[in-house]
Design a protein around this nucleic acid. Sequence first.
RNA 1: UGCCCGAUGGUGUAACUGGCAACACGUCUGAUUUUGGUUCAGAAGAGUCUAGGUUCGAGCCCUAGUCGGGCAACCA
Length: 567
Amino acid sequence: MKNSNETTEYVPLNFIEQIIEKDLKEGKNNGELLTRFPPEPNGYLHIGHAKSICLNFGLALKYGGKCNLRFDDTNPETEDTEYVDAIIDDVKWLGFHWPGEVLFASDYFDRLYDFAVNLIKIGLAYVDDQSAEQISETRGTPTIPGKESPNRNRSVEENLDLFARMKNGEFPDASRVLRAKIDMASPNMHLRDPALYRIKRGHHHRTGDKWCIYPMYDFAHGQSDYFEGITHSICTLEFEVHRPLYDWLVDRLKDGIYRPYQIEFARLELGYTVTSKRKLLQLVKEGYVSGWDDPRMPTIRGMRRRGYTPEAIRVFCNKVGVAKRVNVIDPSLLEFSVREDLNKIADRRMAVLDPIKVVIANLPENYEETTLAVNNPEIEDAGRREITFTREIYIDREDFMEDPPKKYFRLSPGNMVRLKYAYIIQCTDYKKDESGKVTEITCEYIPNSKSGNDTSGVKVKGTIHWVSARYGIPLEVRMYDRLFMVEDPQEDDERDFKEFLNHDSLNVIHNAIGEPSLKDVNPGYKCQFERKGYFCVDSDSNDNQKVFNLTVPLRDSWAKIAQKMNN
RNA sequence: UGCCCGAUGGUGUAACUGGCAACACGUCUGAUUUUGGUUCAGAAGAGUCUAGGUUCGAGCCCUAGUCGGGCAACCA
């Protein structure tokens, strides 16, 4: 450290925080900070949006500012209140708050219209009668300058008249547009007289049929920022080339020193999934997943149903960082964040996913012994619950091997393991069916080896979970794996991303057995199935049967050892 | 062939704006453990896209190039 007398420790800032701290220090925009999260209500929010939400709301929190929730609803064709409601719910679920009401770009339609009229008056906008095709053709290409529209130099009066008549519905859809008069030869395509307003008779989710002209994104976004007093308008990289237009418009709208500034960052891409709204919609529509909230989906709703916590998602979004480099985050980081949170808060329970019956031969037929099991070893006062040990129990198929390799610490013929919270047992016999599948195991328990007061002197390397055959309850357990088999399913434009779908991403277990305490839990309840992973109760559960979703498996160092031995 | 961004271990970010690369995930060791979890201790792994230049000194600055991304909706 350079300055040893400096009391504040240096904390690395991302580039946006650096800009903000500088702006705040210099008193730019009165030293205020107001950000905004501006979704278009035409789809559900996903993990990429979560990063933007955490960034915008997080910055406001960090620097004592505020963050608005504003819908960018300028295209009635694709937008719907269904999405508005879902998005509001998702942002709240993530744990963020905005000042006052939810805002909409459509709140500003009147002011936007007035601004457009002003632009016409000062000769910076004109009505173009050309068709979309003509406009597209005369825009030129990135290397060839565009051609000016024959309507470019209409009089202010004629433009005013035409624009008013556009608004009044005198012209058919798409027959005319209002364009900014900037520069048809600009190397930046967005400055070649961009369209500001189009005629479109869609039914708007909020303004109904009041308007038949709607502002384009570029004509709505920066101005909405300005109307709200946004200081830092943070968006993703693809809007970088829009910034000159953003500035051009805001500079003509502002009427003092205040103005918002756009800053772009690289969106979050997550490996082995897709985050394009179009592709996500396709997965839903074509039935590859059960819906927007399918637990395999990278949507907020999907992750929520999967059992991810808001805390875990927020921590994850902070860990990935903020920069301008295109990035693909490895899902292991997300899973780490989820485990980290769940380890602290989730109850421990025992459940057997692939049951084999074990009969403890040296125990009487009706033997029962009830003991207390720790709910969460990470939390001292998380309490205990009762579990009952009986002569017949179930253990997981993975925990028994006829012919085990050296480092296998679980049950095998002649060998011993501890049953968690109960006794050490030794395998004396086992049965198989014609196919060679083990159907039942016979064991003997070691007296005096009871968990907690073991005086047997027997030492075992392994402890396994179990469920009483008499008291266990049937469970449906849905095991999930990554949706795609390749890290970047959209890398190859030539190939349909669906070719890379992982067809084993869902594996439903119908005959799992859980400890009896699982009978009384409600959808959303999260727990760890000991030695397996974190699971949560799905909304498909009913009184007869609980359905559990695998949220994330526990780290499994045995699986790695076993895999190595196989290779 | 135009314009705008970007380039640091496998992945993602950092290096307090010029002082011989740090953190997290992942990987690997070991210890503890009645979860092969957690926790703890430790290790390996980049010399910063390339080539020049400025400088006592460059991941940071300059020039050229290479590679990657974006831009030609009346989408956002």
